[in-house]
Design a protein around this nucleic acid. Sequence first.
DNA 1: CGGCGCATCGAACCCAGGGTGGAGACCCGA
DNA 2: TCGGGTCTCCACCCTGGGTTCGATGCGCCG
Lengths: 226, 226
Amino acid sequence: MGAGVIRVLLADDQRVVRDGLAMVLGLLDGIEVAGSAADGEQAVAMARRLRPDVVLMDLRMPRVNGIEATRQLAGEVHVIALTTYDDDQSVVEALRAGARGYLTKDAGADEIKAAIEAVMAGGAAIDPAVQRHVVDAIASGPPEPPTELPDGLTQREVEVLGLMADGMSNSEIAEHLVISMATVKSHVNHLLAKIGARDRAQAVAYAFRARLANRGARPGAWRAPS
Amino acid sequence: MGAGVIRVLLADDQRVVRDGLAMVLGLLDGIEVAGSAADGEQAVAMARRLRPDVVLMDLRMPRVNGIEATRQLAGEVHVIALTTYDDDQSVVEALRAGARGYLTKDAGADEIKAAIEAVMAGGAAIDPAVQRHVVDAIASGPPEPPTELPDGLTQREVEVLGLMADGMSNSEIAEHLVISMATVKSHVNHLLAKIGARDRAQAVAYAFRARLANRGARPGAWRAPS
DNA sequence: CGGCGCATCGAACCCAGGGTGGAGACCCGA
DNA sequence: TCGGGTCTCCACCCTGGGTTCGATGCGCCG
């Protein structure tokens, strides 16, 4: 990192905020203000030209708002939202857009610095004042009902279903579970009947919808290297 | 509230942690340890009997784990998860279960106190060390509209794949698309080769992992009523 | 003790699904 | 104009998967 200095770009439509922030941040060790933009369009352009480490982005700005600017810069630089608004809408939207931090404007210099450093270290920083909104979004957002216990499925049947969802054939499942293929077929037929599926393809779909299959791996997880 | 004292219930399977926490919290002004439980079941029972203001809940506990206990107590008392684990799974799950705070076990007394007070004030408190996971959950969770263009799949092939994921047979797909079954087979074979799947079951799994299938409907969506 | 559910196997059957090879029609870019 | 890709279709073969009718051993419960 050059001289270990973190270069920051400021984006805010209010002059006083920009200048004030520049003053405050300029006094901090290890932080350097690379520039300041007055609207989202400018912010994106300057970020790409100046290549700062972090962008402190106001969400309410003319022309292109901070959310959109954040979206465009996500992946290029670290973005920390900085706003007077603490309504859940903007917090969640900002994070969705790719912001890794969220500060309200009554944050102190130390808090801003901590946030910048946290983000630079690969972490995130959310103002305590709005953490509640984030928590709510998580708690209520995705409906979630966890791994609801399947119909009348047996332990073994669930296991077999999981392996089917992993793309294994009957014989592979047999080998994996160290049982005979006849047994596997038996389990398969039983679970097909229970979940009301006609074939293993429908069973796999059921497994994913019932969240019994690990959606983790990349799509083409199976298939040997070469 | 009485004398302005916040009553806290501790839930952790490790004795040293319970006792140590009780010591530390006992020294803090305005906080009183109402009791301590050694497993989730006990935690739920004690919480309902003692009616504490806050429960500090370890997630990894015998009998009933902290997640489940949190779910049961959500709405009754404020729950703060307290764990050594900082993997995204447990953070997100804990918050989904209704926890309003999340602390790792290397939190200091002051941090714990701040978290308790934040939660009591209607806020939330998430350990900075795991905020990243929460942000990721928000950023990647619900949205994901970019139905990323699959491998080298054709428009038609994607369409067929989607119908397969809906549990349709080749002949049903043919009927649905008003084409012959031979054509469907052709499409199927092509897409199987492209995505590296051996059979339609693997293709269905691929469809779900690649988010090409609508996970919307309940698991047993197909199947006529009676 | 008898009955029930679960897991384990076997054998035989049938067919949808997958593999192969080819072909004609269309559109589009070189 | 000539490929190249896509969508459409046909005929043939063959295997895996799903179906049916069994059977055995085990653990649990009334």
